[in-house]
């Protein structure tokens, strides 16, 4: 496990534990000077909070936010 991977794990934990985000399903990958975050958050405000929490911790690295906001499309239907 590289030092980048350790940092990625610490950042994922921060996203779960910081009450502004509190999302456990986000993936953070650190590659040199880039920090890439992906996964789904509940609303646009939570997406902004992801960026806030990470910016506090990544120093001068470039943050790439690939998170999605949970969809509000038509309800999918299932037959049981």
């Amino acid at each position: 496990m590289s030092e980048d991977s350790y940092l990625g794990a610490h950042l994922e934990e921060a996203l779960a534990e910081d009450g502004r985000v509190a999302e456990q399903g986000l993936h953070v990958q650190v590659a040199g000077d880039r920090v890439v975050v992906s996964g789904t958050v509940s609303d646009p405000e939570r997406k902004r909070a992801v960026a806030e929490v990470l910016r506090d911790r990544v120093g001068g690295r470039t943050l790439v936010d690939l998170t999605d906001v949970a969809g509000s499309g038509p309800p999918p239907e299932e037959l049981v």
Binding site: S42, G71, S72, G73, P75, E77, E78, L79, V80
Partner: peptide, 24 residues
């Protein structure tokens, strides 16, 4: 037993509708 994961990120919708036939 049919099992449905209704986590909103999976549905990409505010809810899903499971239509159940009681005869089955």
């Amino acid at each position: 037993v049919p099992t449905f994961n209704v986590a909103r990120p999976v549905l990409a919708a505010p809810y899903t509708v499971l239509t159940v036939d009681p005869k089955r």
